Amino acid sequence: MESIRRYQWNGSLNIEVLTDSAIVLAGTQEEKCRVSFRIPRDTYLTIYLPYILERLEEILKNNVTDRYKGWWFSFDQVPLDWTYPIGVLYDSLVQLDPSFRNSTMTSDTVNVWKLVIHHDEKLPPGIIPIINGMKQIQEYWMHQWKQACFVLNGSSKQIMSLAKADSMSFWYSILNRDQKTFDRILEKILQNRDTVKNIPLKIHVASSEVKLIESITNASTYDPKLTLNDILRRACPQIFSAEEPSCFAKPIVQGIEVPLDSLILNLFNCFMSFDGFLHVSVSQVKK
């Protein structure tokens, strides 16, 4: 499991951000409107807003007075909800079968996800405005952990009782990509992963927008033999329980196709995200 967690921690995406022409100075060369970088799969894209805007500042029509407020990203004209890990957004929106991705890539292929950055005082519906910069992002992330702890144990005491120094180190381990510190504090929160009450799980169904189905297993039904297939048949019966589904559906976790008969607790222990949840993206391929 340690090797799987290490690979997950080091997993990344190649991103190319193109600037919305509405906020660019007239006559700016197109290559100056692009920012290319690599980002960890298991993080929020908005954490990298200051870096992106620093690269773009000289070609923007207006001075950047706030590096978080009013900014948002889109893919194929679909606004990206910053509250999801970037890897989850990719797996949910790109809608490519992982086996197809592998078959079309060679040693010389660089897979780049192309996004657009926008700025407007009025954000698209469903996008939470960032008013308080990085502090707000940190508070949202900590709130996710409180939820995850409550689902796991029936109480958020494990995360709430962390010393202030540990809480800050936990957050900075995300910013600094320090897995050793992250795992050290994680052990204080998840002292016994084999005796949990429920599994913090979010299922994302790939469509023209990220459709979120929160499927948190109930204490009355959870048992060590519970599989991903059991969960998906309950949460997405139109896809996984139909006698003649219109598509082949595959569950993707951290960019990997996982078997439907996988035990849900094993998946959580191996692939839990940096926000305390197990995120499952359903990749649908039409027949």
Rank of each mutant, 00 (worst) to 15 (best):
N102V: 11
N102E: 14
T104F: 12
T106L: 12
S107L: 12
T109C: 04
N111Q: 11
V112M: 12
V112I: 15
W113G: 02
K114N: 03
V116F: 02
H118D: 10
P124H: 13
P124L: 02
I127Q: 04
I128H: 09
P129C: 08
I131V: 02
N132F: 06
G133F: 01
Q136L: 05
Q138P: 00
E139N: 14
E139P: 01
W141K: 00
M142H: 11
Q144S: 02
K146H: 12
K146T: 14
F150Y: 13
F150S: 09
V151C: 03
L152P: 01
K157M: 05
Q158I: 01
L162S: 06
A163F: 04
K164L: 12
K164W: 07
S167V: 13
S167L: 11
M168K: 15
F170E: 14
S173D: 13
S173Y: 06
I174Y: 07
L175C: 04
N176W: 09
N176F: 12
R177I: 10
D178Y: 15
Q179L: 13
F182L: 05
I185P: 02
I185G: 03
I185D: 01
L186P: 00
L186A: 08
E187C: 14
I189N: 05
N192Y: 07
R193I: 14
R193Y: 08
D194K: 15
D194M: 13
T195Q: 15
K197W: 01
N198T: 07
I199E: 13
V205S: 04
V205C: 08
A206M: 05
S207C: 06
E209D: 12
V210S: 10
V210Y: 02
K211R: 06
K211H: 10
E214C: 05
Y222S: 04
Y222D: 02
P224H: 07
P224L: 10
L226A: 01
L226V: 11
T227M: 04
L228Y: 03
L228E: 03
N229I: 02
I231E: 11
I231M: 12
L232M: 05
L232W: 00
R233K: 15
R233Q: 08
R234T: 13
A235Q: 10
Q238Y: 13
Q238A: 08
I239T: 14
F240N: 06
F240I: 03
S241I: 04
